[in-house]
Write a protein that binds this DNA or RNA. Sequence first.
DNA 1: GTACGTGCAAAAATTTTGCTTTAAT
DNA 2: ATTAAAGCAAAATTTTTGCACGTAC
Lengths: 152, 152
Amino acid sequence: MLQTQSTVMDFDSALERFKSISLDKGLRLTHQRLEILRELVGAKDHPSAEMVFGRVRRRLPTISLDTVYRTLSTFDELGLIMRVPVTGDQGRFDADTSPHHHFVCSRCKAIYDFFWDEFDRLTLPLDSEALGRADDRRVVLRGVCTRCMGEQ
Amino acid sequence: MLQTQSTVMDFDSALERFKSISLDKGLRLTHQRLEILRELVGAKDHPSAEMVFGRVRRRLPTISLDTVYRTLSTFDELGLIMRVPVTGDQGRFDADTSPHHHFVCSRCKAIYDFFWDEFDRLTLPLDSEALGRADDRRVVLRGVCTRCMGEQ
DNA sequence: GTACGTGCAAAAATTTTGCTTTAAT
DNA sequence: ATTAAAGCAAAATTTTTGCACGTAC
């Protein structure tokens, strides 16, 4: 079977990125940061801070929620992870910062990744170029996911 | 001079849409709803609930913030307005539900509209079609806006 | 040893909810 | 007259912050 297009970033390369950034900016490699990174790299559901907290706590029972928030913000600022551009009560995070896009189910709020080379190669319209320098471009699809459609 | 491509929805047509929906669903045309709709249609900055509250209050001094929240949610569910898919502390709203896209300045948090026909005409990738039925597709650009670039 | 990061607690900010009153139909 | 919606107050939820202690460097 063909390898899927999915870019499942592995922990080791994410860790390497973090290490090199750490050296640069004088950040420390703490257990908490490592475990949060590991959790996020392994997650496929674009978890919220609360979700990350719940999962990391299984391995690091003394970790606190505010550390998770602080760490996720730090990682986001470093470009190590990204916030998924979705509406909703909670912020959702993604350790995969490669060009890919999101399908958001308006019923169950699940977020799925998909890839779209044709879009990625498109030249931005003049309209948008006049607005500023775009560092990142994402497509967000909103609809009802296959699973929810099945459940009628 | 050429007419710009901008779809500045006017209040009258938004009102007509609201009226026909109201008849359908038994919603009432209250002052509050009308003024919130007027404000949103006139706004070009994709305001948050708090921003809408502040502006509408100038004309309707007794309106309360929770009414604004409830009304915006109602309008969103009716498809009369949309939540802009952006990350950030507050939800942002847009009275223009026509196909258009957003540029978000990561520095000043301003949200600008732009149009992109070429994208709108693109067929979604198979990848995404497998995920579910997409009702809406948006592009989100994240970067630094011209104004912030000017301010060094 | 130095300071950066964590945990704790508290606060801030945003959004939602229950209930009574007001007002649109 | 009915009943949805508004306003008020309170709560719930999410996220941020100040500070003392712990720990990576």
